[in-house]
Amino acid sequence: MKTATVKELKTELNYSSQAELIELCLQLSKFKKENKELLTYLLFEKSNEEGFIEDVKIEVDVLFTEINTNSYFYIKKSVRKILRLIKKYIRYSKKKETEIELLLYFCKKLSEFKPSVRKNSVLLGILQREVISVKKKIKVVHEDLQYDYNLELKNLNL
Rank of each mutant, 00 (worst) to 15 (best):
R84A: 09
F52Q: 01
T69M: 13
L158D: 09
I58M: 01
E112N: 11
I67R: 01
L83F: 15
E20Y: 09
N35H: 10
S133W: 06
E101N: 12
V141M: 06
L43N: 02
L153P: 06
K108L: 09
K7H: 12
E152I: 13
G51W: 07
L102I: 01
D55V: 02
Y89D: 00
K57I: 07
L151W: 13
F64C: 00
E54C: 03
R84Y: 15
K88C: 04
L124S: 12
H142C: 03
V141T: 12
G51Y: 07
E152F: 08
N120I: 11
E143C: 06
R129W: 08
S116I: 11
L127M: 08
D55P: 02
E49R: 10
P115F: 15
N48F: 09
F52P: 00
V140R: 10
S93T: 08
F44M: 03
K95I: 14
Y74T: 11
F73D: 11
Q128W: 13
L9S: 08
K154M: 13
L103S: 10
F113L: 06
K32V: 06
E54K: 04
I90N: 06
L13V: 07
L83R: 14
V131S: 05
K81C: 10
S29Y: 06
V56F: 05
Q128C: 05
E23V: 06
E97I: 15
